[in-house]
Computed example of a mutant assay.
Amino acid sequence: MSRSDNLLPRQLGDAHIRLLRIYKAVIESGGFSSAEVILNISRPAISQAISELESLLQMRLCNRGRSGFSITEEGEAVYQATLQLLSSLETFRAQINAINTDLRGELNIGITDNMVSMPRMRITRSLAALKQRGPEIVINIRMIPPNAIETAVLDGQLQIGVVPELRTLPGLNYFPLYEERSELYCSDTHPLFGRYDSEISEQDLASAEAVLPAYPQAAEIRQQQAGLKASASSTDREGIAFLILSGEYIGFLPTHFAERWVRDGKLRAIQPGQRYFHTQFMAITRKGARTNLVLEAYLEELINTERAG
């Protein structure tokens, strides 16, 4: 590609920042396919964005093709510069928010899917309390996979996230929120539905087609799923419910999420005394982030909901 002294315009707009965010996600996920889940956009759209960024910068950022995905030396330098830029943007936002002593601004929060039916509504109760303290606060919620939430909190797109406890990243603070129980379910049209638990053998479960999550799982969860016949997957728990309700698959669902269908006789738990696991959900924030009064107020309200029980 040809070079020039001024590759970028004098003013970087939202469109340029968007391209850099897409590029960052591609590099951190190791390719276009993996970035689809994080970004929630199609692979062709990601490819077009990277090509547009390469054209703008007049350099090859990454290699892709039959030989696989890899970052170029120039691409690594651009990635590091992108991290600095996005961090500076978040610092600016935090500094401006700190000026607002009347709790004005935005709360950007990312939440793992299908938690709204949790019996202890700490998230909704704390959001209500925050809104009462700052009526002008704008609350933005994104329902995205846990790894995408971690990435967005780290680069400042989100101020706080709610994710299952799978790993501990050095750049994040963790606050315990919920413990969630999941059990193994089948629908009323599945062959196992009408059988007593005592009649269902290990071989019956091993031969039944199962839907498994297409996202990282804790060791306890993987152990429970190890003996199942994985023949379908889903990127979220609503997708798992769809497949179980089809009558063709068994799979694990949170008990609070499955309760509506159990109550209506559409689902039943299989051997709930044996086939279950617990997931701890955590609130996460970025370490070292500048003072943000809106975020601090929300964290205070989350702590208050724990005390209230």
Rank of each mutant, 00 (worst) to 15 (best):
L212Q: 13
L212S: 13
P213M: 14
P216T: 12
P216W: 14
P216E: 08
Q217S: 12
Q217N: 10
A218S: 13
A218D: 05
E220R: 10
E220N: 15
E220H: 11
I221L: 02
I221T: 12
I221H: 01
Q223R: 13
Q223G: 03
Q224C: 07
Q224I: 04
Q224P: 01
Q224R: 13
Q225C: 06
A226M: 10
A226R: 14
G227P: 09
S231D: 07
S233L: 02
S233Q: 13
S234R: 03
S234P: 01
T235P: 02
D236Y: 08
R237S: 04
E238S: 09
E238N: 12
G239W: 05
G239F: 02
G239C: 06
I244C: 02
I244F: 01
I244E: 06
L245I: 06
S246A: 05
S246G: 08
G247Y: 00
E248H: 09
E248T: 05
Y249F: 14
G251C: 02
G251N: 05
F252M: 08
F252V: 07
L253V: 03
F257K: 05
F257M: 09
F257I: 08
A258C: 04
E259R: 15
E259A: 13
R260Y: 04
R260W: 00
R260H: 06
W261P: 00
W261Y: 15
V262K: 11
D264V: 04
G265E: 04
K266C: 02
K266V: 01
L267V: 12
R268E: 02
A269V: 04
A269S: 14
I270D: 03
I270W: 02
I270H: 01
Q271V: 11
P272S: 10
G273N: 12
G273M: 06
Q274H: 09
R275M: 13
Y276Q: 12
Y276S: 15
Y276T: 10
F277I: 11
F277V: 07
H278K: 14
T279M: 03
T279N: 11
